[in-house]
Amino acid sequence: MKRGKLDTLIKVQREIAGARNALNEPEPSSWGDIAEALAEHVQMGGREYLANHAITSERRAVFRTDRLSDVRVSDRVVALAQAWNITEVRPLGRRFIELHCKAEGSA
């Protein structure tokens, strides 16, 4: 992979568990940045299908970037003005990884 292809800025975020308020009720969780890197946006696909008697759409993307430490499938990527849930993390040799993602809000 060539560094000149790393042209998309991505942020990897992790869900921060909500704290508890004075009444010991759970606060809503939020997302915090854990890494920021340049990546290559490799592909973008999608499909439409029938589920629960309704047409459902799904968008997928793959981002290649330098190896980031501690990226999990429970994290998400924010790129291209969209939040993407990570579905798979694949190593590419010793220096790079592929982040396979599904657009947040897709089925």
Rank of each mutant, 00 (worst) to 15 (best):
A19C: 10
E40N: 13
A103G: 06
N21G: 07
V12T: 09
L23K: 14
L92Q: 13
H53S: 11
A37W: 03
N24K: 02
I34R: 06
D70W: 10
E58L: 09
E98I: 04
L50C: 07
N85D: 14
H100M: 05
A61I: 01
H41S: 12
T56K: 11
I16H: 07
A51M: 09
E25T: 04
S106D: 01
R60P: 01
R3F: 15
V78A: 07
T87I: 13
L99F: 01
A19Y: 06
V89K: 08
V77H: 05
V73K: 14
V42Y: 02
K102N: 06
A61V: 07
S74C: 07
C101A: 02
V77T: 00
P91W: 03
R64P: 02
D70H: 15
N24M: 01
R72E: 04
I55C: 13
N85M: 14
G32D: 15
Q82A: 12
P26T: 11
R20P: 04
R94G: 08
E58Y: 04
T65V: 03
I86C: 07
G18N: 11
D7I: 14
L38D: 08
A107R: 04
A22P: 05
V73G: 13
E40H: 13
S74R: 12
E104K: 07
R3V: 15
A81L: 14
E58G: 00
D33M: 13
A37F: 03
Q82D: 14
L68K: 05
S30V: 13
M1E: 04
K102Q: 10
V12K: 00
V78E: 03
S30C: 01
A79M: 00
F63W: 01
R90W: 00
A81K: 15
L80H: 11
L92S: 06
A37P: 01
E36T: 13
L92E: 04
M44I: 11
L68Y: 06
S106G: 01
A19M: 05
E98N: 06
V89E: 02
A22Y: 06
A35T: 05
D70K: 15
W31F: 05
K11G: 02
F96E: 11
A83H: 12
V12H: 01
K2W: 10
H53G: 13
N52A: 10
W31M: 05
A107H: 08
I97R: 01
A83R: 02
L38N: 14
V77A: 04
R64T: 10
R14N: 05
P26G: 07
D66H: 15
V42M: 02
A61D: 01
A39T: 01
A19T: 15
S74I: 12
K102T: 09
V89R: 09
M44R: 13
S57G: 08
R76D: 10
W31C: 10
L68F: 00
I55A: 11
F96V: 08
A79E: 04
D75L: 09
R67L: 15
F63D: 01
E104Q: 07
A61E: 07
E25K: 03
F96Q: 10
D75K: 02
S69D: 14
G32K: 04
A35D: 07
N85W: 11
G18E: 12
K5I: 15
N85G: 03
R94K: 14
A81C: 15
I10Q: 05
I55H: 02
R90Y: 00
